[in-house]
Nucleic acid binder design. Structure first.
Lengths: 350, 350
DNA sequence: CTGTTAGCGCCTTCAG
DNA sequence: CTGAAGGCGCTAACAG
């Protein structure tokens, strides 16, 4: 394999100057048709496929691509339906714009830094899955425009968020309105320490992840308004994957056998809870009401179809990407959520 | 926003040469600690975050990222569980290697060419969803190493394939072995012409897509061996998305009401067929046996769990990516498939 | 160890 | 319309 052809090789072979050759590819209208045809011909014979984007890039200063920082390993990433939706939104905005998308994974903490620093992109969308702010710091260092999602990076940076607290409150109010008083919470992780299982009030107070904290605050707000002491609520934290969620649901049911309803902080958790309930012979919603959060596609097709808090996941991605392209000053968008009542909730039996 | 800092600005401010400054970041061990500390200090004060990857790239000639050419729009891409699996494999290989992944979409035919030509990557993995060879041509023009998947690009290019024909044959033999003689086929699209619906033998003979053709050949082989005339089989083509698949399943059932079994060329098609059967009051597998292809995660959890042909989707991606990194001469890998018998197949009633 | 020099491949003034 | 020259930001080779 011989040294790759450069523009100048083509120019020489065609007997024209570099810039003429460049124009043939970049601005063909500036070149006399006969010359253009000749240069193109020579390029073809030589096997020159057109200007190398690497050179163009340096010159132009722009890559015409954005990076999506995943905040977790790529491998698990695609398994989560939430991420699929989100990526659809991102990529749609990029398609509109003719821009590319690079995936920046965070398999290892150390590599993450390097990955962010060396990514060939014009801007970064941060998927702060857990609502932590570590990614914000790294992105800030890199010095590229960036937009955080699902975390609040402070007023000096851009972000797209949803009203987690409001949505959670809607979910809790729905159950309370149906007459439930004995409600358990199946929670997302609250911090980056790998702890799962029962979360007492002290633990809850120490949660770092914004999503988790805000959703809990939403639930608590509704409990308090209904005169239910939030401290008395059983809360169990779980990884947001089906298998783990199922065993944490089991833990929740074991710990509080008299629950009539469960607030799950994600649809993945909720669907796992439905399955676990089924395994125990509990019918949903007759014996147990369950409310999810997110409204992933599977929520509509689970059995029973899931009552959940709809958030515009794809829209979040779309907005974030567009925000980068627009390049305005820092701004913060909070997208609305709404309760979608399906068939996993009903009045309690007792 | 002032002009971004360059390495040379830092060097000047620190009173050292460019290359010393460069070494501070790229090969710190070559620089005297005191000098290094000083330069780092100056960089920090100035707000210099480290060398710009754009410059490094041009110098190094390598991007350290591969592109995945999707062969369809990004938006639909993430909705398909097959793609999710495949990407997991790709990204795993990239994680191993510390390389990045760029997504190259094919929303519009014209843009595709440009996207491929201007992608900042060291190599390309082609997802020839439909088994056509259009992408191969474009990738070849670009002049970067590439690996085709799910299509046969000919011996001069690398590829990773599965044994589509063998797998399809296994599926058909399974049904025949159970005693089915009256079998319908729910097929993937056979060509890029948007045609769906009943496919007569002439139509089948004109199919371009490798996957579709090979799988049909596998079915036909089993039919012929069992003395069932392949020409008599009812075949219906469908887009590989749930809604379309369901109406094509309906068409198939309407057209051949006495089927006892269906061979679906994908799990998405098979699951849609199960649903449509259910809507008509046909029980699977008692009234109708259904076999899928791919073994996507949903196949194991559908009701009933789907008998299907397992193919190592993620492994395919992993191999393709590794092949690019290895940079060997063109090679062709054919991955094995196996029949996974679950609960969607049984002996026919009659 | 440190500084000088020479590109990586391209594009864009600016003269002719 | 064409050609010459400068530089995008960085690093590897080579002297000091």
């Amino acid at each position: 394999m011989n040294r790759p052809l450069r523009l100048i090789d083509v120019a020489k072979a065609a007997g024209v100057s570099r810039s003429t050759a460049s124009n043939v590819f970049a601005r063909p209208d500036l070149v006399r048709p006969t010359v253009r045809a000749h240069v193109e011909d020579v390029a073809r014979t030589l096997g020159y496929a057109g200007p190398d984007p690497k050179g163009r890039l340096l010159r132009a200063g722009r890559v015409n691509a954005i990076g999506v920082v995943l905040g977790e390993g790529l491998t698990e990433f695609f398994a989560d339906p939430y991420n699929q939706e989100f990526m659809s939104g991102i990529t749609e905005a990029c398609d509109e714009r003719g821009a590319g998308v690079s995936l920046i994974s965070a398999k290892q903490e150390q590599a993450l830094r390097w990955n962010i620093d060396s990514a060939l992109v014009d801007g970064l969308v941060l998927m702060c899955m857990a609502g932590d702010t570590r990614l914000v710091e790294l992105a800030h260092r890199r010095g590229l425009p960036f937009v955080a999602t699902d975390t609040d990076p402070g007023p000096e940076f851009s972000s797209v968020l949803i009203d987690d607290r409001g949505g959670a409150r809607l979910a809790a109010e729905h159950l309370i309105g149906l007459g439930h008083r004995n409600i358990g919470v199946l929670s997302l992780e609250g911090a980056d320490d790998g702890k799962v299982g029962f979360a007492d009030p002290a633990r809850r107070a120490s949660w770092e992840y914004r999503n988790t904290r805000e959703r809990m605050l939403g639930y608590d707000g509704a409990f308090a308004a209904a005169g239910i002491p939030p401290e008395g609520i059983t809360v169990v934290e779980s990884l947001n994957v089906p298998d783990a969620a199922r065993s944490m649901a089991a833990l929740l049911f074991d710990r509080s056998p008299d629950l009539t309803a469960v607030l799950a902080m994600s649809d993945v958790l909720a669907i796992a809870a439905i399955r676990e309930a089924g395994r125990r012979g509990l019918k949903v919603p007759e014996d147990l009401s369950i409310v999810g959060f997110d409204d992933i596609p599977a929520a509509a097709t689970s059995s029973p179809p899931l009552t959940t808090v709809h958030q515009p996941i794809a829209e979040k991605g779309r907005r974030a990407a567009r925000m980068i392209f627009a390049g305005d000053r820092p701004q913060r968008e909070v997208l609305p959520v709404e309760l979608v009542v399906r068939e996993s909730t009903a009045r309690p039996r007792r």
